[in-house]
Nucleic acid binder design. Structure first.
Length: 436
RNA sequence: GGAGGAGUGGCCGAGCGGUCGAAGGCAGCGGUCUUGAAAACCGCCGUACGAGAGUACCGGGGGUUCGAAUCCCUCCUCCUCUGCCA
């Protein structure tokens, strides 16, 4: 059966508003098949539920009558024998219902969110829509190098040490590199605090229901790291998981909204199925640091909130004076849970390309339904699902990559962005070590 | 890790195996009264599915029974004491 642990959130979950199922179908034929199958199961489930309710009603009223009877009377004995049979049928029906519910639940958990109407149709990233750019591509009077060449020469990125300790896709940051990582975390958190985000520091190990709540499970179990001990823990792939689930199973007051959090967390990704992709450098690591932004917001304000949240993420890049662009992901590139996603892509001259450094999404009520996060629109009113919006602000490792590549100089040194210097003890540039 | 104790509605807190969706209190909402407020009094006051009748839910799961908040098993969580330890 489904592992519900102690969290009472299984039976009555509604993964996706049934009214929006057809919108989800925009994602393609596999989804359409899922939806059809789901609707079939639901129909039989509802029918069974009806007959079962009748049986139970019959049992309940009989029991009420029996309570008043003399327990030794023949009438009582007759009723008991009759009810024995009804009870048996109830039990059988319940068992069947549990199976149907499990099936329905499982199907539903695999149906992705419905894309927002402004999301362009498309197969893959080629069809994403560029919305804006900020700054300009810096020009160099030399061939710009990749960050791994720069970082290794400066002695701040040690991939060999990372591999020795943990294998591929790990890196040791040294000296100014380590400090740069730490400085960026502080800097980013401070920027977001200015924008009204409350800082939290959540666990990096969570239980299964948390990942189901934000939608990483059950479909993407291969992407997650799991601990080997007796209790099942998952290493979080993003701060979104613990921070969003902070309010799982809660009914919030309207006055509390919007709730805005920023969190620094390490992130862990198995990167299954990405063999041979980004094998060099810091771009795709099994472990990396990220500062996350999360908002819980009333439904009619969530798209406004998405823009505002994206603005906060962009603010970090602007203060660091890093050239970037923003793209609107098409249906084919859109994540499983998202209704709309804006990727912020930073310019990497060493690789002559833009790379995602932040992904800002509106999940509408998709995560809220899974994690049961609701609010009361008015005192006394029925609870409604909130909307959740989140984004990276930013991925720290990739920010290091961007700084190394955009701020590199001909002599191999790298300037420190002005806004960051106070966080680096006034350091203005990272220079090549002098040969002894 | 060891030993005890506890988990009931937003909160506190009752609850002989049957008439308990669950007493009572607090908070909240509506009303009467009041120039206004307080007090007092009256009413309402969980969630989900269902057109409705109704059904389900007293930490989770399982069992006993015609019938379980109440009995049994198991898991989880929290508290107290104790051991080890960053």
């Amino acid at each position: 059966m489904r592992p519900c642990s102690h969290v009472p959130r299984c039976e009555d979950l509604r993964m996706l508003d049934v009214a929006r199922l057809d919108d989800a179908a925009r994602r393609g034929p596999e989804v359409v098949t899922l939806i059809e199958e789901f609707r079939g199961i639901e129909a039989t489930r509802k029918e069974l539920q009806g007959t079962l309710d009748h049986l139970r009603a019959q049992r309940n009223s009989a029991n009420k009558r029996m309570a008043a009877l003399d327990k030794k009377s023949e009438e009582f004995a007759a009723a008991r024998d009759e009810m024995r049979d009804v009870s048996k049928r109830v039990k059988a029906g319940e068992q069947q219902l549990v199976e149907l519910e499990a099936k329905s639940h499982d199907l539903r958990m695999h149906i992705p969110n419905a894309p927002h109407e402004s999301v362009p149709d498309g197969e893959g990233e080629e069809e994403n829509q560029e919305l804006s750019t900020w700054g300009e591509k810096p020009s160099y009077d030399f061939a710009p190098k990749t960050h791994w060449d720069i970082g290794e020469a400066l002695g701040i990125l040690d991939f060999e040490a990372g591999a020795k300790l943990s294998g591929s896709r790990f890196c040791v940051l040294r000296d100014h590199g380590s400090r740069l990582n730490r400085a960026l975390i502080s800097f980013m958190l401070d920027v977001h605090a200015e924008k009204g985000y409350r800082e939290v520091w959540p666990p990096a190990l969570v239980k299964r229901p948390a990942l189901e709540g934000t939608g990483q499970l059950p479909k993407f179990e291969d992407d997650a790291f799991k601990t080997a001990g007796e209790t099942e823990y998952f290493l979080i792939p993003t701060g979104e998981v613990p921070v969003t689930n902070l309010h799982a199973d809660e009914i919030l007051d309207r006055d509390q909204l919007p709730i805005k959090y920023t969190a620094y967390t390490p992130c862990f990704r198995a990167e299954a199925g990405s063999y041979g992709k980004d094998t060099r450098g810091l771009i795709r690591q099994h472990q990396f640091d990220k500062v996350e932004l999360v908002q819980f917001i009333e439904p009619d304000k969530s798209y406004q909130a998405l823009l505002e949240l994206r603005e906060s993420a962009e603010e970090v890049l602007r203060r660091l004076e890093l050239h970037y662009r923003v793209v609107n992901l098409c249906t084919g590139d859109l994540g499983f849970c998202a209704s709309q996603t804006f990727d912020i892509e930073v310019w990497l001259p060493g690789q002559d390309t833009y790379r995602e450094i932040s992904s800002c999404s509106n999940f509408e009520d998709y995560q809220a339904r899974r994690a049961k996060i609701r609010y009361r629109p008015e005192v006394g009113a029925k609870p409604r699902m909130v909307h959740t919006v989140n984004g990276s602000g930013l991925a720290v490792g990739r920010t290091i990559v961007a700084i190394l590549e955009q701020y590199q100089r001909a002599d191999g040194s790298v300037a420190i962005p002005k806004a960051l210097q106070p966080y680096m003890g006034g350091l203005q540039s990272i220079d090549l070590p002098v040969a002894p």
